[in-house]
């Protein structure tokens, strides 16, 4: 591209918002929220500004991995209805710009997090970015229908990083918070894949409904929902779970299992007849599920003084 073409091509000029969209703001909000909960429930204290700055670094790191994902996946994003409005397929941002932003912000976020808090947290953030950009995006996504199972780990690290910002270590409790999001990701995405099946098929992404059919996907959703309930239950035995988490756990897992059973009992004909009503509501419920669990942990941490007196602070 010549200098003249850059000046003369108004379509190429992206707004600031187009560059911001590369960071996947919606995914970033989940990262910020779960990292914040990890930071709040961790034992110990950290200066409020260091906490804010650390969360900002985690958000930027998560956003940077999103930009790297958009750079590498630009070819399939152009094909899929859900993603063709993204900045690269829309022609607003070039692939090279996305790569440069992704690498620069990744390095910035990791180094600044290390300087602001500690290098355990920074190392976890670096590993998260590597896992999402390389292990999931470049390797698993196009090669195995289990892509979302293993790749889900990338989205599950933020609460562990938030925890590490305060404590500087990795514990069973922070690992269980990781496990909660890790086990939640497969049923969440498979429900989406059931009603967005044709999108993944067109892009030749080996999602479970494409490779193994919808019957197998429905079975998988049910099994993973039950495993998720066990994982969420395990958190009850940690010091961070209190009465609010117990209530959220009981209500949300009951609803989630009922939703999974509904999906399991249906076939494609029934789903198409009501435009995937059960699958869509299960997908929406999955968002509320994660939000409720992490919110409950946060509320329990804030109310810990009250519940200490009641003797309920973790079952053990």
């Amino acid at each position: 591209m010549t200098d003249a073409s850059i000046i003369a091509d108004p379509d190429h000029d992206a707004d600031f918002g187009d560059f911001f969209a590369l960071l996947k703001p919606r995914v970033m909000s989940l990262v910020v929220f779960t990292a914040l909960v990890g930071l709040i429930v961790a034992p110990g204290t950290v200066h409020p500004f260091v906490a804010f700055f650390s969360i900002l670094c985690i958000a930027i790191g998560g956003g940077a991995s999103g930009a790297l994902n958009m750079w590498y996946d630009a070819d399939i994003d152009r094909v899929m209805k859900r993603t063709k409005g993204r900045p690269i397929p829309a022609g607003k941002v070039t692939e090279g710009e996305a790569l440069a932003i992704g690498i620069t912000l990744s390095a910035f976020a990791v180094i600044m997090l290390g300087l602001a808090s500690n290098w355990v947290a920074a190392g976890l953030l670096a590993f998260t970015i590597f896992f999402y950009a390389v292990v999931y995006t470049m390797w698993l996504k196009r090669s195995t229908p289990q892509n979302i199972v293993i790749g889900g780990a990338a989205g599950a690290f933020p609460p562990m990083i938030g925890w590490a910002v305060v404590t500087g270590d990795i514990t069973i409790t922070s690992t269980l918070m990781f496990a909660l999001t890790f086990m939640w990701t497969p049923p969440h995405f498979w429900a989406l894949a059931l009603f967005m099946n044709s999108d993944y098929d067109k892009a030749k992404v080996p999602m479970l409904p494409v490779t193994h059919g919808t019957r197998s996907t429905r079975n998988h959703i049910l099994v993973y929902t039950l495993l998720l309930a066990l994982t969420a239950g395990a958190l009850l035995f940690t010091p961070i779970a209190g009465l609010v988490y117990l209530v959220a756990f009981a209500v949300m897992n009951a609803l989630f299992i009922i939703g999974a059973v509904k999906i399991w009992r249906r076939d494609d004909a029934a789903s198409k007849a009501d435009n995937f009503k059960a699958e869509r509501s299960f997908f929406k419920l999955s968002l509320a599920y994660l939000f409720a669990h992490f919110s409950a942990l946060m509320i329990d941490a804030m109310l810990s003084g009250v519940f200490d007196g009641m003797g309920f602070k973790g079952l053990f």
Binding site: D15, F16, G17, F19
Partner: peptide, 8 residues
Amino acid sequence: RRKSRNVG
């Protein structure tokens, strides 16, 4: 045209 990104 580039005002938005420059200000941002």
